[in-house]
């Protein structure tokens, strides 16, 4: 029997500049599939990962955003987005492809303190 751990994945990179977002997602979903309590946080350029209307096929990349649409089905507990990261980039919540939990940097501190482990992309 595996011991369940609280894991937070911090996604700070834009989606298609490297393979890190895809591989970070693979790791997060693997942990979630085996009983770990996984949450995802998007901040800085990571917020571009959850924008609507991505067309990565134009640059030969595989779309990662469809995996976020079904995040609850994958056993992910929370999907957090840092509010300031959206505001700085002029992105409104209506431009995001899923319902997210917007958090302030103060709330982020609390969320991080609740975790057993933190992974960054």
């Amino acid at each position: 029997m595996l011991v369940s751990k609280r894991c937070l994945f911090i996604n700070r990179h834009a989606p298609y500049g490297s393979s890190h977002p895809q591989e970070t997602l693979d790791m997060a979903y693997a942990l979630a599939a085996f009983e770990h309590r996984v949450s995802l946080l998007f901040m800085d350029d990571g917020v571009y990962q959850i924008l609507h209307n991505q067309a990565p096929a134009m640059i030969g990349m595989k779309e990662i955003s469809h995996a976020f649409r079904a995040w609850e089905d994958y056993g992910i507990e929370h999907l957090y987005v840092e509010k300031a990261s959206l505001e700085i980039r002029g992105i409104g919540v209506e431009e995001l492809l899923v319902n997210v939990c917007l958090v302030s940097s103060t709330e982020l501190h609390e969320i991080m303190e609740q975790q057993d482990f933190i992974f960054s992309d």
């Binding site: 595996l2 369940s4 751990k5 693979d26 790791m27 693997a30 942990l31 085996f34 770990h36």
Partner: peptide
Amino acid sequence: TLGRLVEAVSL
């Protein structure tokens, strides 16, 4: 596989 990491994280 990533499954081995899942076990290690658990321990």
